[in-house]
Design a protein around this nucleic acid. Structure first.
Length: 736
RNA sequence: GCGCCUUUAGCUCAGUUGGUAGAGCAGCUCAUUUACACUGAGAAGGUCGGGGGUUCAAGUCCCUCAAGGCGCACCA
């Protein structure tokens, strides 16, 4: 012993309690070791849980996209789920929480392509399929590693031994199996239809991947030619060279007599052939009451053309340029062509009216490209086909029944209506994408000697050399739709699959209700004939302190890991959870998180007080000599525990967190601890003993109740709690 | 156009079968070698968006209006 080292001068006469409690709680030096301890214990894996954990509880982590790092929104999600999971584990469920990441096809590929183009000036075809995929996979793997690191920092008790990736081999096998089943059942079909084409990303996208932005457009009223009997109106004059019909309401007295007539017209340098048709969908009140039908470049017009057998004439190509022959328009961008056509109309004296109107612009969610409707040969999922072994119900009906009849419970309830409303508007789902990063479509083609194309769909390539696999990949949500069961080993009949499916709860953001939640229900209902989860819990969007969306351009992002490093993961979790009910957006700022760091320290100091005033004692479960006052306090605490247990079962985590915070700080610390000082100073021997036991019991119970919310500080304190026969807190029982 | 949500203290939000308005933060006034300053005590602060109805009783149920936010669809 160095003689210079003196015992530190303590203001408070410290008994022999662990040294660590003499300093403020420091999350930075404890959290990593605690997490490692949990990993080493193996308790994240339900196979390692003790005997009492029998009834399964399962939940999948909504797999973060491998497009970068986690933001506050993901931390929010992880915090909520970890509370659910830790609660279930303490309640004695055989608890499984499966981690994973999502390859996020278009999002990831376009991000990497943009980077490469910025740095090297190269585009996808300059690199080739193999090299581009190598680069994307490299990027995805880095993102994956930082995401995993972040999840651990927040304290997520995920079973890492079961980690999955939407694009790994097992999930690829699941995708192929699902695709083949749907193909064989005629649910998946290939069709030439107008789809949403993203000229920037050079791929089709689904209806849900379109973002509408408000803008202004010009609305032109004109005639095709001087001799044409009807004026039409449009915001896109350049597409009119692709018109093959004019639709009017069948009962419109102005036009009724013209229905069925056909015209050959010279229009802006193109020869077009137009037939007048009567269609109920046309609103006689709008515009001139007549629609110029451009089947190739409008979803609505395409439907009209189908009903009246009008030909489809594409006039715009994949690069949003005119594909017509005339020197006037050939090769022009659509925006240039529009001006040329308008000028031509003016010159010919055909333009009757030009007015400004508000108009929504359709852009691709991931690339920002302006979506161009184009006719293309693509793969679709038919949502209206009756399925024999699902009681002759369609996919739409299966999706509706999942919530209406088959018992999926949605929290908060009002999202049930949002879900049903979305499904009622659902059209066939275009699942093929012209990008390279994703699950390749398991279909092969061969052209025989007579020039006829053969199609083969299978789990593996067919034998023979002349088969060529479809170049396209699948929409990323196709593989995510299988997530609740592909992560459990399906299509193999694994014991995980049999034990944990349907999963207990799905917790996710309401913003991906249509993309993901609906598709998981679709896939599970169709493929397995069961719902994928019993309960859906939706959380909202995390906003900044002023209520603005977190965005790069605003620079208002707060990194959850930075916050955890500064204030502790427990504080970040509490800040995210408290004050936010399901389905509500939440506001998070540094000050809120800071407040809960103080709370963690409060719990720490309560422990210091309790341990130092109960030295030599341990929690005595059989203690019965309670004072009158302590009996009353115990009854009060019993009531609180019963109340929060009920609320936990109803997923009202935000209430429980707040109530525990309030009880621990303002009842236990401010009132009970203060009063105890008097008891210890002047109470009788029996009163003192009763109070000592009460403090120990109460601390012990509140630590257990707080554990799901603040796992790190509670586990750290628990190590020094005088509780006979204690287990690690993570597998201790929930207090009742 | 169809639909959903929100409106309660300065700010953020609780308030679950209708029964006297709640918490946190901020602000204000005190306390100051205390288990803890990452502290404690206290006071102040609301005609629960407006109007109407049901009821013995409405923040809560019904109708209506207003403001704000969001989703879906989109008419050429």
């Amino acid at each position: 012993m160095n003689p210079d080292t003196k015992a530190p001068n303590q203001p408070f006469k410290e008994p022999n309690i662990p040294q660590k409690f003499l300093k403020p709680y420091d999350p930075a030096t404890t959290e990593d070791a605690i997490y490692q301890g949990w990993i080493d214990s193996g308790y994240f894996n339900p196979d390692n849980l003790p005997e009492r954990h029998k009834v399964p509880f399962s939940i999948v982590l909504p797999p973060p996209n491998v497009t970068g790092i986690l933001h506050m929104g993901s931390a929010f999600m992880v915090a909520i789920e970890d509370v659910m999971v830790r609660y279930a584990r303490m309640k004695g469920f055989k608890t499984l929480w499966i981690p994973g990441t999502d390859h996020a096809a278009i999002a990831t590929q376009s991000k990497v392509e943009t980077e490469i183009y910025k740095k090297e000036g190269k585009r996808r075809h300059d690199l080739g399929r193999e090299e581009l995929l190598r680069r994307i996979n490299e990027f995805a793997s880095q993102s994956h590693d930082s995401i995993v690191h972040q999840l651990k920092k927040i304290g997520a008790s995920l079973d890492w031994s079961r980690e999955a990736y939407t694009l790994d081999n097992k999930r690829n096998f699941a995708v192929r199996t699902a695709f083949k089943k749907m193909y064989d059942d005629g649910i998946i079909y290939r069709g030439y239809r107008v789809v949403n084409w993203d000229p920037k990303g050079q791929t089709t996208i689904s209806d849900d991947e379109i973002v509408y932005t408000e803008g202004k457009g010009k609305f032109y009223t004109f005639k095709y030619s001087k001799d044409f009997p009807i004026s039409i109106a449009t915001t896109r004059p350049e597409t009119k060279v692709g018109d093959t019909g004019v639709a009017v309401h069948p009962d419109d007295p102005r036009y009724k007599a013209l229905i069925g007539k056909e015209y050959d017209i010279d229009f802006a340098g193109e020869k077009i052939h137009v037939k007048i048709v009567g269609d109920m969908e046309v609103n006689p009140e709008f515009g001139t009451g007549a629609v110029g039908v451009t089947p190739a470049h409008s979803h609505v017009d395409y439907e009209i053309a189908r009903r009246h057998d009008l030909p489809i004439v594409p006039v715009i190509n994949e690069y949003a340029k005119m594909s017509v022959a005339s020197s006037l328009l050939a090769g022009k961008k659509t925006t240039e062509a529009r001006e040329i056509v308008v000028a031509w109309l003016k010159e010919q004296g055909l333009l009757e009216k030009e007015e400004e109107i508000p108009q929504n612009l359709s852009t691709a969610e991931r690339t920002g490209g302006i979506v161009e409707p184009l006719p293309k040969l693509q793969w679709f999922v038919n949502v209206n086909k009756k399925i024999a072994d699902r009681g002759n119900r369609t996919l739409k009906e299966l999706m509706l029944d999942a919530v209406r009849k088959d018992g999926i419970k949605i929290i908060p309830e009002n999202f049930e209506r949002v879900y049903l409303h979305w499904i009622e508007n659902l059209r066939d789902w275009c699942i093929s994408r012209q990008i390279w990063f994703g699950h390749r479509i398991p279909v092969w083609y061969k052209t025989d000697v007579s020039g006829k194309e053969e199609i083969f769909c299978g789990l593996e390539a067919p034998s023979g050399d002349d088969w060529k696999q479809d170049e396209d990949t699948l929409d990323t949500w196709f593989s995510s739709g299988l997530w609740t069961f592909s992560t459990l080993g399906w299509p193999e009949e694994t014991s995980d699959f049999k034990t944990y499916h349907p999963t207990t709860v799905l917790e996710t953001g309401y913003d991906i209700l249509p993309f993901w939640v609906a598709r998981m229900i679709l896939m599970s209902q169709y493929i397995l004939g069961t719902i994928p989860f019993n309960t859906v819990y939706f959380h909202g969007i995390v906003r900044d302190e002023q209520g603005r969306k977190i965005s790069k351009s605003l620079g208002n992002n707060i990194d959850p890991v930075d916050m955890a490093a500064k204030y502790g993961a427990d504080a970040v979790r509490m800040g995210l959870i408290i004050g936010t009910g399901p389905g509500n957006d939440s506001k998070i700022g540094e000050s809120k998180i800071k407040g809960y760091k103080n709370f963690a320290n409060k719990v720490w100091n309560i422990t210091r007080f309790v341990l130092s005033s109960t030295e030599g004692l341990s929690v005595d479960k059989s203690f019965a000599a309670w004072s009158e006052k302590d009996t009353a306090l115990t009854i009060e605490l019993d009531a609180l525990m019963a109340e929060i247990t009920k609320e936990m079962d109803e997923y009202k985590l935000y209430l429980v967190g707040e109530k525990l915070y309030h009880y621990v700080w303002h009842n236990f610390a401010d009132a009970i601890l203060e009063e105890s000082k008097a008891v210890f100073a002047s109470g009788t021997e029996a009163e003192r003993l009763s109070r000592q036991q009460f403090l120990l019991h109460t601390l012990e119970r509140t630590l257990r109740a707080l554990h799901p919310f603040m796992p790190f500080v509670t586990e750290e304190i628990w190590k020094d709690m005088p509780v006979p026969g204690k287990l690690p807190l993570i597998i201790e029982t929930w207090p009742s």
